[in-house]
């Protein structure tokens, strides 16, 4: 038997949802449960949930343009150093660097209500990465150090 030498891989918690805003609560509950288990304090759990909500909302609204029948898949990868959320989708790509940090007074003058999501994600998490692919799935990766 190989048991003695076998590597043990921890299972990766996964959630698959349809691209509908009514599923955002399900996403937050999923993240909350695992972030709490990791020992993050209440405020940090709240922030991680909010960042993930913002990422999924962006995918639903902009990536999938409110098409309610597309898929979003979330994986949580926990290591001693970090709590990583990988959010997979096949929505429309965009250049995340083209999103300017919001200036509320400027936004107010422009009567613009958007643009806060990505800024919030970056403020609330330690690292945010976007990987876009025309052949494979896109990924938004959110990282919080423990």
């Amino acid at each position: 038997m190989y048991g003695k030498y076998r590597m043990s891989y921890p299972s990766i918690p996964m959630l698959k949802i349809l691209s509908r805003t009514e599923n955002l609560q399900k996403v937050r509950e999923f993240i909350k449960q695992h972030a709490q288990q990791c020992g993050f304090d209440d405020d940090t759990v709240y922030n991680i949930c909010l960042a993930t909500d913002e990422a999924c909302t962006n995918i639903i609204k902009h990536g999938y343009r409110n098409d309610r029948n597309q898929e979003i898949e979330l994986h949580i990868v926990i290591s001693p150093q970090s709590f990583v959320i990988r959010i997979f989708n096949v929505g429309k790509c965009f250049d995340p660097n083209s999103i300017e940090p919001p200036n509320v007074l400027k936004y107010y003058e422009k009567k613009d209500r958007g643009g806060y999501g990505i800024y919030l994600m970056k403020k609330l998490m330690d690292e945010v990465h976007f990987f876009f692919s025309t052949e494979q799935r896109n990924e938004v990766r959110l990282i919080k150090y423990r």
């Binding site: 909010l50 936004y107 107010y108 209500r113």
Partner: peptide, 16 residues
């Protein structure tokens, strides 16, 4: 108990 940027956007939209 909770607010995301979608909620904040509503206030911005009507403030003017």
């Amino acid at each position: 108990q909770y607010i995301s940027s979608a909620g904040l956007g509503v206030f911005m939209a009507y403030l003017d």
